[in-house]
Design a protein around this nucleic acid. Structure first.
Length: 561
DNA sequence: CGGCTTTGACCTGCGC
DNA sequence: GCGCAGGTCAAAGCCG
């Protein structure tokens, strides 16, 4: 396991751009180029604070002029510096000839004027995009409100009708269905890829058909389908289960309530089996298409993806809103504290499991590791953690799918996507048998790492008065999810600026915070547009994801017997 | 009595 | 092939 050395100190102060001093003009150049330089701020501050200090200023002028020279190489001004690499501290120590200072200053001023002009344009463009985003967000919110109102009206109408026409149970079912249609976006946002993947891996072919048909698929819809079609058995039956009924009959006759778990344990309960399954069936069914194998592997990775949450707690288990049943306990090697295994019992076949173990070094730290995604409605309290784990797992998946190396590469977009909001709190384990992302929430505001609390937006968030810990995972999840969206924009640089997460966890406010972060850089217009699309079109987004995962799910479905 | 926890047995993958 | 470790199962017991 390693930590990504990404700094949080790179946040920019836009206000300062408004008061540009001659020296700050140089800074604009840096601003243009050095998105991720922590030094930028420091340099800027020094420029401001040491305005009188000519010596110090010279150093910076030299440095930044050097950068101009770099871009201005075509004018045959060779100062003998190799500036092809990123700006480093060593640049400051490079020796300038000093003779061409006037010429350089002139040129630099012209250059800076141009750049400043450009910057102004970009600022305007930024402002415009920001306005668009806020307007779109407002529209979305109002539409959502209207939709909810209409739903409620319809619900009331239906229930009053059903009071005459149907039994109370039917009305209840209807209500639930109505309710389900209202919720999907909430759930859809949870697992852009993973949720759908995991879920679709278990849905029957007719459910898949429905999903393919374009209606916003949600976990709830399919669970409804299952409820209507199969719950008569008293519990959920996965399609593979019905197929595997024969082979499982022996066990079932013994009264073992197994099928979902049996298929689960084949699927991911024993994750090591997955590749076998996938590969074998891929060979059987999809030999012609090599991509299918990759997708199966990706799905296997998804199933293996784990989200570990470290938190200080004296309680034996952190309350995450879900219902869990302990199904095992084991002494893990190297830890005197036993590891407990829990399974989500909110739905019959929910594949989510978690492991709870105290940290060997610090018994007050509780390590909770989540696997899988819920395939059932969750209470708001449970949404928090679920969104975190799903988003993080999805992120792991997206990273691992694109490149195995990339996942572990600190310079990778994925890593940058994680880190702006979680920084040193988020680690990705390379040594673990499964890709694991660890969210370290143990550095409480009164913790022993002051830098953590001052630099880390999440810790700042935690420090706020009235902070509700239950909200944190959701915020993390949203941030992770949001960043995941960004991470998909290959070729785009992600901002070093951490997302300033608001104290409330509403989607719109998170969107605003995220958009503010993005919009602060003119180069993220495309990212902004895509982010708007992904957020505003929650359902279509889900459709896209679903469709993207269709092959995976299909192949997986085919793979299973 | 149903649901949950406990706990030893069992299964599986992996390294040697 | 063997041992180890992680993960799961399931009978027994507990509890409300």
């Amino acid at each position: 396991m390693f930590r990504f050395p990404v700094s949080l100190g790179g946040s920019r102060d836009e206000a300062r751009h408004d008061q540009i001093t001659p020296l700050d003009e140089h800074r604009v150049v840096v601003d243009e180029v050095d998105f991720f330089s922590e030094k930028r701020d420091r340099v800027s501050r020094e420029d401001i604070n040491d305005d009188e200090d000519e010596e110090a200023n010279k150093v910076h002028v030299k440095m930044e002029n050097s950068r101009i020279e770099e871009s201005d190489r075509s004018r045959d001004v060779n100062i003998g510096l190799n500036l092809l690499t990123a700006n480093t501290g060593s640049d400051e120590s490079t020796v300038d000839d000093g003779l061409s200072m006037d010429m350089e200053d002139k040129r630099a001023k012209i250059e800076n004027a141009q750049l400043q002009e450009e910057l102004k344009k970009m600022k305007i463009e930024n402002q415009r995009l920001r306005d668009m985003l806020s307007q779109a967000t407002n529209n979305f919110n109002s539409l959502q409100m209207q939709l909810v109102a209409v739903m409620r009206q319809q619900e009331q109408r239906n229930s009053s009708q059903e009071h005459f026409l149907a039994t109370e149970g039917k009305a209840e079912g209807r209500k639930r269905q109505e309710l389900h249609t209202m919720v999907p976006r909430q759930f859809m946002d949870l697992g852009p890829s993973s949720g759908a993947t995991e879920h679709e891996a278990e849905v029957s072919s007719e459910e898949r058909t429905m999903i393919h048909s374009g209606s916003p698929p949600s976990l709830l819809e399919s669970s409804n389908l299952r409820e209507n079609g199969k719950r008569l058995l008293g519990r959920e039956e996965s399609p593979e289960e019905s197929d595997s009924n024969l082979r499982e009959n022996g066990k079932r006759l013994l009264g073992r309530e197994e099928s979902p778990e049996e298929s689960e344990s084949n699927a991911w309960g024993n994750p090591n089996k997955v590749p076998k399954h996938n590969s074998s069936s891929s060979n059987n069914n999809n030999n012609a298409n090599g991509n299918v194998i990759d997708q199966s592997a990706a799905e296997a990775t998804m199933r293996k993806a784990r989200v570990s949450v470290r938190a200080r707690s004296e309680a034996p288990m952190i309350s995450d809103g879900c219902q869990w049943r302990k199904y095992g306990q084991k002494m893990a090697k190297g830890n005197p504290c036993p590891r407990a295994y829990y399974r989500c019992t909110m739905a019959g076949a929910c594949p989510v499991r978690k492991q709870v173990q105290r940290c060997a070094e610090d018994r007050s730290i509780l390590i909770t590791t989540y696997e899988g995604n819920h395939n059932h409605p969750l209470p708001p309290a449970a949404m928090a953690m679920a969104s975190t784990t799903t988003a993080a797992a999805s992120m792991l998946l997206s990273g691992s799918m694109s490149s195995q190396d990339g996942l572990m590469n600190p310079t990778n977009l994925l890593a940058r996507a994680i880190l702006p909001c979680s920084s040193s709190m988020a680690t990705i384990s390379a040594s673990a048998p499964f890709p694991t992302i660890t969210l370290d929430l143990t550095n409480s505001p009164n913790g022993n790492n002051p830098n953590m609390t001052t630099n880390n937006p999440l810790m700042q968030f935690v420090q706020r008065p009235g902070f509700n810990p239950a909200v944190l995972p959701q915020v993390v999840g949203q941030a992770l999810y949001y960043n995941q969206q960004q991470s998909k924009f290959s070729g785009l640089q992600l901002p070093a600026q951490p997302l300033q997460i608001p104290a409330t966890s509403s989607v719109s406010e998170s969107v605003s915070a995220a958009s503010a972060a993005i919009a602060s850089d003119p180069n993220f217009a495309a990212a902004l547009a895509a982010a708007i699309t992904s957020i505003m079109n929650g359902s279509s987004h889900q459709n896209n994801n679903t469709n993207n995962n269709n092959n995976v799910a299909t192949s997986n479905g085919d793979n299973r017997q």
